[in-house]
Amino acid sequence: MVPVQCYFVLSALLFFIGVYGFVTRRNLIAMLISVELVLNAVDINFAAFNRLLFPGEFEGFFMTLFSMGVSAAESAVAIAIVINVYRNFHSDQVNSIEN
């Protein structure tokens, strides 16, 4: 059985990789992928804390499923925004978006 601390370490790594990717990238798709990494880190934390604090219950897992649904909806909206930005500015770089 994998210790819960390993899940916390994995979650922290995913979170910091996602934040680093969001701050350093200028491509809108890469930034969206970085945000998804951060949200996956949160999902892992929900499940790990549920296993640590309430081993016989499933509230953390239900929160994870709810968060995954919200993440999917957020991704669909973000991709629609990226497509509209590309149509208007002919680029997917953040620097090209001007008034």
Rank of each mutant, 00 (worst) to 15 (best):
M1G: 15
V2A: 05
F8T: 06
F8Q: 11
S11I: 11
L13E: 05
F15P: 00
F15E: 07
F16E: 09
Y20T: 13
F22C: 12
V23I: 14
R25K: 12
R25W: 02
R26G: 12
R26F: 08
N27H: 07
N27A: 03
L28A: 08
L28Q: 05
I29E: 00
I29F: 10
A30G: 03
L32F: 07
I33C: 01
I33P: 01
E36G: 01
L37F: 15
L37C: 15
N40M: 12
A41T: 12
V42Q: 09
N45S: 13
F46P: 02
A47P: 00
A48R: 10
A48E: 08
F49I: 13
R51W: 08
L52N: 02
L53W: 15
L53D: 11
F54G: 02
P55E: 10
P55T: 05
G56T: 10
G60W: 09
G60M: 09
F61C: 06
M63E: 05
L65W: 07
F66S: 10
S67M: 10
S67L: 12
S67C: 09
M68S: 10
M68R: 11
V70L: 14
S71I: 05
S71G: 13
A72K: 08
A72Q: 06
E74T: 10
E74S: 13
S75Q: 04
A76Q: 01
A78G: 00
A78S: 07
A80K: 02
A80W: 03
V85P: 01
Y86Q: 06
Y86T: 01
R87Q: 12
R87G: 04
N88D: 06
N88Q: 09
N88M: 07
F89C: 04
F89A: 04
F89Y: 14
F89P: 01
H90K: 10
H90W: 02
H90C: 04
S91L: 04
S91V: 01
S91K: 01
S91E: 06
D92C: 04
D92S: 05
V94C: 03
V94K: 05
N95M: 10
N99F: 12
